[in-house]
Simulated scan of single mutants.
Amino acid sequence: MVQTLPAPAVREPSAGQIIRTNFSDTVVSSLRTFGRSVSMALEAVAGAVSDLVRGKFQWREMFFQAWYFIAVTAFPAILMAIPFGVIVSVQVGNLIHQLGADSLLGATGGLGVIKQGAPMATGLLLGGAGAAAIAADLGARTVREEIDALRVMGINPVHRLVIPRMVAMILVAPLLNILMITVGVLAGYGVAIGAQGVTSGSYWLTFGSFTVAADIFVSLGKSVLFGFLVVIVACQRGLEAKGGPRGVADGVNAAVVLSVVAIVLVNLLITQVTSMFMPVRLA
C-alpha cells in the first residue's frame, strides 16, 4: 500500500515583507530611471555640440519645435504673470503698509517676480504644456514603432528628435521668462499706483535700488535649467512609452509630474545657494 506524503506547507509572505519588497523595487526602478535620464542628458548635450561642429544639426526641426513651444506657452504665460504680479503686490503691499514703508513696494514686488515668480512660473508652464506635448509626440512615435524604424535605418533618435527639442526649449525658456518678468512687474506696478497709493517715482526708485543685474541673470539661468530638465524628462518618458495609447497617456502624466517635482527641488536648492552667496543688498 502506497502512502502519500503531505504536501509541504507554503509559507505566505508577511505584510512587512511585501511592503519592503515593493519599496526596494520602487527605489531600484527609480534609480535606474534617473540613471537613464542622466545618460540621455549627457548624450544630448555632447551630441548637440558635435552636430553643430559637423554641420549636421537639425535646424528645421529645432525652429519648428521652438515656434510650437512659443505658440502654446506665450499667451498662457501672460495670463499667469498678470495675477501673480497682482497677488505679490497686494499681499506684500498690505504688510509693508502696516510697517509704514510703502515706498519699498517696488523693491519687494520686483524681487519677488524676478527671482522666484517668473522662473518658477516659466518652469511650471513648460513642465505642463511643453512636457505633455513632447512626451505625447515621442510616445506616439514609440508605440507606432517609428523609433525602432529609425534605429534600424541607422538614425540615432537622440540626434534626430531629442537634441532639436532640447535646443528649442533652451532658447524659448529665457524668452518666456523675460515676458513673464515684464508682464508681472507692470501688473504689480499698476496695482501699486492705482490701488495702494504708491507714487510712480518711489516705486521705480526702490525697484532699481534693490534689483541688480545679477538677479536678472540668475532668473534667466534658472529658466534655462528648468527648460533643460523638462525636455530631458519628457523625452525620456516618451521614448520609453509602451503598451499602446494607455502607455502614452501614462508617459505624459509621468513627464508632467516628474518635471514639476524636479523644478521645485532644483529651485529650492538654487534659492538656498544664491541666498548664501548673493544676499539682497542695496544697489
Results as ranks from 00 to 15, higher is better:
100 G>K: 08
73 T>V: 14
57 F>M: 10
17 Q>P: 00
108 T>D: 02
221 G>S: 07
123 G>K: 01
239 L>S: 04
87 I>K: 00
74 A>C: 12
86 V>A: 15
268 L>P: 00
92 V>L: 06
150 L>C: 08
30 S>Y: 09
80 M>L: 15
2 V>H: 08
25 D>P: 01
99 L>H: 09
233 V>N: 05
233 V>M: 10
69 F>R: 00
68 Y>F: 14
188 G>D: 07
178 I>A: 15
241 A>C: 09
14 S>M: 09
176 L>F: 08
142 T>G: 00
187 A>L: 09
102 D>T: 12
258 L>E: 12
264 V>M: 15
155 I>K: 07
18 I>R: 15
149 A>F: 09
44 A>D: 04
70 I>D: 01
41 A>K: 02
11 R>F: 04
218 V>E: 05
208 G>V: 11
157 P>H: 11
86 V>W: 05
281 R>D: 03
232 I>E: 03
281 R>T: 11
20 R>C: 04
283 A>P: 06
30 S>D: 05
63 F>V: 15
64 F>T: 13
122 T>F: 03
105 L>C: 06
19 I>R: 12
105 L>Y: 03
112 G>E: 09
5 L>T: 08
113 V>P: 00
283 A>M: 07
31 L>C: 12
101 A>I: 11
186 L>S: 13
38 V>M: 13
84 F>D: 01
269 L>S: 02
178 I>S: 12
16 G>L: 15
31 L>N: 04
117 G>E: 05
259 S>I: 08
35 G>Q: 14
24 S>G: 05
30 S>R: 07
66 A>R: 03
230 V>Y: 04
113 V>C: 02
66 A>V: 07
89 S>M: 11
81 A>P: 04
258 L>G: 00
283 A>R: 13
183 V>T: 15
132 A>V: 10
228 F>T: 03
234 A>Q: 04
272 Q>K: 10
263 I>D: 01
276 M>G: 02
14 S>L: 11
35 G>S: 14
152 V>M: 14
245 P>N: 13
116 Q>K: 03
102 D>Q: 13
67 W>M: 11
75 F>V: 15
91 Q>G: 01
234 A>P: 05
117 G>D: 05
141 R>L: 12
193 I>L: 07
185 V>L: 14
231 V>N: 06
166 M>N: 07
200 S>T: 15
169 M>V: 12
202 S>G: 01
205 L>E: 15
